[in-house]
Amino acid sequence: MNIFRFAGDMTHLISIVVLLLKIYATKSCSGISLKTQELYVIVFLARYLDLFTDFISVYNTVMKLVFIGSSLAIVWCMRMHRAVKRTYDKELDTFRHYFLVLGSFVLALLLHEKFTFQEIFWAFSIYLEAVAILPQLVMLQRSGNVDNLTGQYVFFLGAYRAFYILNWIYRFFTEPHFSRWIACLSGLVQTAFYADFFYYYFISWKNNAKLQLPA
């Protein structure tokens, strides 16, 4: 464990806490893409298949349970909670995310570290996570005005993988066998998707103005 990875995990946790806060405090999920949240449930379930077989550390197991539990809770809330589901902007959340699932799975069948069930699903989860934010970013562009909590949620979500890139660079120079090229390349693509969001987020922060994404 290094400081970059720990910072990345904490930033990821903060993004989830901000989203849960928004939904529970405002009893609203307006501006949140249910499709992105559903993709994250698939990402965590596919990635943490080894939850009960490989024990790495208490921290690792606890964080996996938190990520799986929170992503399921968010999807449940947006689909089933009487007050929250009414605020879901279904007509704005139109990205055909099934193609992202299919594409990621096909890519995982072609590009993986080892042709085993667990490794295929691990690579699938890495590729899917890279594109999972797309429905949310498209929805933000459509809805134009972004409320603070939603903006902070997307910001922390983007920042976490940026910390992971620093972690991979650090591990590359400090660990002889380290080679996570699948996660690294996918993480770079993932963070690149946030580039324009980060730019407009920084502009709005600098001008102390509301976050406006050009339609």
Binding site: D50, I56, K64, F67, H177, F178, S179
Partner: peptide, 10 residues
Amino acid sequence: EDDDDFHDEL
């Protein structure tokens, strides 16, 4: 080296 066998990152 077994460190490639499992993924120690989240």
